[in-house]
């Protein structure tokens, strides 16, 4: 079939295909310059940026589990000033929309970050309110009211589409999603990693320096998919679905369940070129099903 459309539009952000490289797994982009052609992607989301540089959590920061990866990085990043000066210029060389992920310890910090980013040519700002690896207190995304308050304040300041990244570590993700929507979020990204742990039985020690970490990879895919499907039923906002996607079948599951675009995270580590196979797989699927537009597959689950 000719003329298959893979373009998607997320609240005004135009993507040439629905594939997005997700925050934390793609660094600042330049690390992958020999392996990934950013121009071939729908969008990229930067490493989460904070106001001040962050050194991150004590090592060890990684543990491998069955089809999963446990991490406790703790938002290690160069901080907004160095990011704007040294990291963002590289990403601007490409035609692909750049979404900058940010995190603050207070609403005020989020707002300061947004003000700095308003001076830049970027496609969107993602509020990371769901990193499981910073501090012992609950994340914003684990509380409906806090989510509402932060998103509302951020929306007032933001001049580009506002993305909100949701946590799976909640009783009912749809309530948080609704809070974010009521507060003015333009796009929902779900999900962040699952709070989890792993133990070395020989030493009886946690495998991670931070004891708890965030689980990603194929191990979480069915749960992430369930959450996406639930959120799709409660909102008409564009959704970026992610959680363990490694191939085009995984991607299609999320799209059928209701994702307008899909995010790749851990898959980048395993195969930086995975996106190429997924794009081809999506085209083959559409062609085989005689569908001319990927948008027609979004939220197309046959529910008897």
């Amino acid at each position: 079939m000719k003329n298959i459309n893979l373009k998607v539009n997320l609240a005004g952000i135009s993507l040439k295909n629905p594939l997005i490289l997700e925050s934390g797994c793609f660094g600042y982009g330049e690390e992958y310059q020999d392996l990934i052609n950013i121009n071939e992607l729908g969008a990229v989301v930067t490493k989460t940026i904070t106001l001040k540089p962050k050194v991150g959590n004590p090592p060890p920061r990684l543990a491998e589990t069955a089809s999963g990866l446990l991490n406790s990085i703790g938002l290690a990043n160069v901080g907004i000033e160095l990011f704007l000066k040294e990291k963002l210029p590289y990403l601007k060389k490409f035609s692909t929309p750049i979404i900058v992920s940010i995190a603050g310890e207070t609403t005020e910090e989020y707002l300061q970050l947004i003000q700095r980013l308003n001076e830049e040519q970027i496609a969107g700002i993602e509020l990371n309110i769901s990193c499981p690896n910073v501090g012992k207190k609950l994340t914003v995304a684990q509380d409906e009211d806090k989510t509402f308050g932060l998103v509302k304040a951020a929306k007032k300041q933001t001049e580009v589409p506002l993305l909100v990244k949701l946590s799976p570590n909640v009783t009912d993700i749809t309530r948080i999603a609704k809070s974010a929507e009521r507060a003015g979020a333009d796009i929902l990204s779900l999900v962040n990693t699952f709070s989890a742990m792993s133990i070395d039985v020989e030493t009886k020690s946690p495998k991670l320096g931070g004891i708890l970490g965030g689980l990603s990879g194929p191990a979480i895919k069915p749960i992430a998919l369930r959450m996406l499907w639930q959120v799709r039923k409660t909102t008409s906002l564009p959704i970026i679905g992610m959680g363990g996607i490694t191939d085009s079948r995984d991607a299609l599951e999320f799209i059928i369940a209701g994702a307008n675009a899909i995010g790749l995270g851990t898959a980048i580590f395993i195969n930086p070129q995975a996106y190429q196979g997924i794009i081809k797989g999506l085209k083959d699927y559409l062609s085989r099903k005689r569908i001319d537009d990927i948008n027609k597959v979004v939220a197309s689950l046959n529910e008897k």
Partner: peptide
């Protein structure tokens, strides 16, 4: 994990 300096 990444092997290229991205994931820290």
């Amino acid at each position: 994990a990444c092997g290229v300096g991205a994931c820290q």
